[in-house]
Design a protein around this nucleic acid. Structure first.
Length: 321
DNA sequence: AAGCCGGGGGC
DNA sequence: GCCCCAGGCTT
């Protein structure tokens, strides 16, 4: 079974098993009640590396504030970033608005249905392009997120990772013509609820007799759990990734509609315990990175007088875009 | 191919 | 404490 021989009969059995399972186990999620490509895109971007339960309140709030792609495109970027507070991966907020602007400016305000064109929008990769095509336009496309990749890999190829291209090829062969929406939803749901990474529920699995991984998956998972990991680097609380989040959160706290920003010397203590003037170059470096990502703006570069480097840095002002 | 990018929840 | 999670982008 290592090459995942997908005979027509086997495809039919896998389809039937998963269809039935989805009919009985599908959650009622808000983005499954719409075909609005804008709403679908919002949900998919929020769901990147983020669990369903945490996305739910953000999704509702975001669509309430920005109900249409035109509304999002026209909004102040600072407001978009503020609404994202707590979701993480803040660049997603910036890219989501950039994508909205591209739809308005380059596609006449209408979302393209072709995954290849969707793929050109900022923040939309292979997965999200396929997801919008399938979930908004009901196209029979195949695409892989971590859930779908795991499910197809296990069922068709077994417990060990197969090449991405092979898994995608198998996923494509499995999509039932005319059922692109339901099939892909089912694959994701199955991976999230049944065929999970740590504890797949093989004992009660409807695909047990079809699954290439079933005979060995428990053994492989146990071996992986014991495997020694590289581990132990700097504590997360002193990584730049952590401080970037702190900086953006501090900028969110500045009064809206005030573009004067905040001094680096005032920002520093809000971000790092024991912050001193010696840390100004370090802080400036992080802010530069955030500006490159569209998450911050340096509002005032040069002071009105000649001064030392520290004075220049301390008078540099920062705000949300 | 590898590193970077936030944050919360499960175990 | 460690791992996982509806990924995408840069180098």
């Amino acid at each position: 079974m290592e090459n995942g021989a997908l005979s027509p009969d086997r495809i039919a059995r896998i389809r039937a098993g998963l269809r039935q399972w989805f009919a009985e186990n599908a959650r009622d999620l808000p983005w499954r009640r719409t075909r609005d490509p804008y709403a679908i895109l919002v949900s998919e971007v929020m769901l990147q590396q983020t669990q369903v339960d945490r996305v739910l309140p953000y999704y509702e709030r975001f669509l309430q504030c920005f109900p249409t792609v035109a509304a999002l495109a026209a909004a102040p970027t600072a407001e978009v970033i503020r609404l994202w507070s707590g979701l993480g991966y803040n660049r997603r907020a910036v890219n989501l608005q950039r994508a909205a602007k591209a739809v308005v400016d380059e596609h006449g305000g209408e979302f393209p249905a072709d995954p290849a064109i969707l793929r050109t929008l900022p923040g939309i990769g292979a997965y999200t392009a396929g997801a919008v095509a399938a979930f908004a336009f009901e196209r029979d496309v195949a695409f892989l997120d971590t859930n779908m990749r795991r499910v197809v890999n296990r069922v068709v190829f077994g417990a060990d990772p197969a090449p991405e291209a092979k898994v995608l090829e198998a996923a494509q062969a499995l999509v039932p013509p005319g059922e692109g929406w339901a099939w892909n939803q089912a694959l994701i749901e199955f991976g999230a609820l049944q065929c999970t990474a740590r504890r797949p529920a093989c004992v009660v699995c409807p695909l047990q007799s079809e699954c290439a991984a079933f005979p060995v998956v428990q053994t492989v998972l146990a071996a992986n759990a014991k495997a020694i990991r590289p581990s132990s680097s700097a504590p997360f609380e002193q990584t730049s990734r952590y401080f970037r989040g702190r900086i953006v959160e501090a900028l969110r706290g500045l009064p809206a509609h005030d573009e004067s920003g905040i001094d680096l010397s005032q920002l520093g203590p809000q971000v790092r315990e024991g912050f001193s003037a010696a840390d100004l170059p370090w802080l400036r470096g992080l802010v530069d990175g955030l500006q490159r990502d569209g998450l911050a703006v340096i509002a005032e570069e040069s002071p009105p007088y000649e001064a030392g480097e520290d004075a220049t840095l301390s008078r540099t002002r920062v705000r949300l875009p």
